[in-house]
Design a binder for these strands. Structure first.
Lengths: 304, 304
DNA sequence: CTGATCCATAGATAATTATCTATATTGATT
DNA sequence: AATCAATATAGATAATTATCTATGGATCAG
């Protein structure tokens, strides 16, 4: 068999000849002239190297080789139909696998959001990577994921960042703190307090540091703690004050009080980030749209 | 997906790109220039309607659509390989289904012969049709079989008949018959005896009738019996004389004696017959060759 | 900053496929 | 013998495929 002479069209014409039982009937069905179909059949038998049809009392029947080829032609046509269906599903975004990477704090945003997404797109599979900002930045640089969620996105030509929700940063104190009773404070009143801070490079830390610089303020005492969860627990226990995202707070459970300090909450956003050059598959486009639409509805439960 | 733009060559080139990991490497493997392969890949993605490859840090990887297409291309290539193998097996004659139709008497020839054939061609399937001459003639006219075995073949333009073995017709008598003691007889001495004959149209009957006409002899008494088996048993029982094929006799079991009548045995052959216009599949060619070669070795156990 | 490597595009050509019309051949039917 | 239906072949043309060379763009290593 000479595969170089084989085309999908020849196989299609052959299948029509078999199914219609004659060259003339097949030519009518295909809107071709009878000599055209006859020649196509001849070309196909040349490609195979042996006759494909025979006539028994003027009735067309397949030779053994023709039977084998017909079955293969059916299998190939069926496989192409399945491919067409798979592609249409994949292109519609209703099926696929997506990789989403978020910094630690963003994990509070996602459980309900992803649960709702799965309701709409049960056949889409989301792999969630959670890490500190440095780790997620590394993944971004290596283009390991489709989408990223940063509160302080990287910058550069290859970064396509879009704010999707506000992320107010509140100054919090333990319930028993003297400042808890005040109705209005300035930050200078608190500059001798101990502040519990995240590691350099974390978004909250960067934003707070930037604000302090803009106010020409230096903290007297600070203590570095690695996770927001530990910071919350430490503030409750009276270890000091802290700046935390509204998305991480769950008052009144937290046993914290938000201090009404002038200039607070610090304004910030969560950004949905993707690589500028990376083409998103349809399912990732769906997830992006879903995140944007869902988070657009978010209202700060702590704000006026 | 636009199947009209798809060719086997495009799929083959695509598979090479994936397997070699780059367009340049694939072009070297295919002995094509790099722009050629790049353009083929673009044509394929145009046919599918979406990009098939992506680059992550200058490293080629498949998109989701590319994964689907690659799998389908692999499946199709595998199916074509299977077809090629099946065709080569079918063309070699080592596989296939054959229909063989023989008249009643020829059934004695075949068991050992077909047993030996199956030893050499275990994957060939032979369907054997046995009937009287009229029935097999009908099958021949309707081109229902690949091969036929006649002792008196039909004639005409569409008949391709080849003698494959001698078929001597002996005159037989019961052991106790007066003629059994003679060392030399002429037929005229027996013309008053009762002859047990097959039905008109049977080969043995036709050949014997032809001989009688050539000798200007008419039988005084005759009795028609439908099967050779019944004729043998009847001769043994003393009902009369008969003309039987050497292939049907199994002396001494038969309790018969062959009369040494001048002009006997009548000379006859078995013919392997096929339709002139009917193209034989390779396995049927094998069977034909096998039958010819096997029966060429046959020696009449009753002759000198 | 330069050179190497890989990929994409433009322009071009040869080969091949797909299709047409015209007509001859074969076999069956009237 | 004439007619009809189906098929095969010849000659021709338009469309498409497959491939080339030339060259520009992007990225990385030295």
């Amino acid at each position: 068999m000479d595969q170089r002479l084989l085309t999908f069209r020849l196989l299609q014409v052959f299948r029509q000849v078999v199914q219609h039982g004659s060259i003339t009937a097949a030519s009518r069905a295909l809107h071709l002239t009878q000599p055209t179909v006859s020649l196509q059949l001849k070309k196909l038998s040349d490609a195979v190297g042996t006759p494909l049809v025979d006539y028994q009392q003027q009735k067309l029947q397949l030779t053994a080789a023709g039977e084998l080829l017909y079955q293969a032609a059916q299998d190939i046509d069926e496989r192409l139909s399945e491919l067409r269906f798979q592609l249409s599903q994949q292109q519609s975004g209703s099926i696929g696998s997506i990789s989403l990477a978020v910094v630690n704090t963003a994990q509070y945003l996602l459980p309900e959001l992803l649960a709702a997404f799965y309701q709409d797109y049960p056949a889409v599979q989301v792999t969630l990577h959670i890490g500190n900002r440095a780790r997620i930045l590394e993944r971004f640089e290596q283009q390991q994921d489709h989408l990223y969620l940063f509160s302080h996105p990287p910058s550069g030509d290859h970064v396509h960042a879009k704010p999707v929700v506000r992320n107010p940063l509140y100054l919090v104190a333990p319930l028993t703190h003297w400042a808890a009773k005040q109705s209005k404070l300035s930050f200078k009143q608190l500059k001798t307090e101990r502040f519990l801070l995240r590691e350099p490079g974390s978004a909250t830390r960067m934003i707070f540091d930037t604000w302090l610089s803009s106010q020409a303020i230096e903290l007297a005492h600070s203590m570095q703690i690695e996770t927001n969860e530990a910071i919350r627990l430490s503030v409750s226990a009276g270890l000091g004050l802290a700046v935390l995202s509204a998305h991480t707070l769950q008052l009144p459970h937290d046993r914290l009080v938000i201090l009404p300090v002038q200039g607070f909450p610090l304004s910030s956003h969560w950004y949905l980030v993707r690589h500028t050059n990376k083409r998103l598959p349809p399912a990732a486009v769906r997830l992006q749209q879903f995140i944007e639409q869902s988070l657009a509805k978010w209202h700060d439960p702590l704000g006026v």
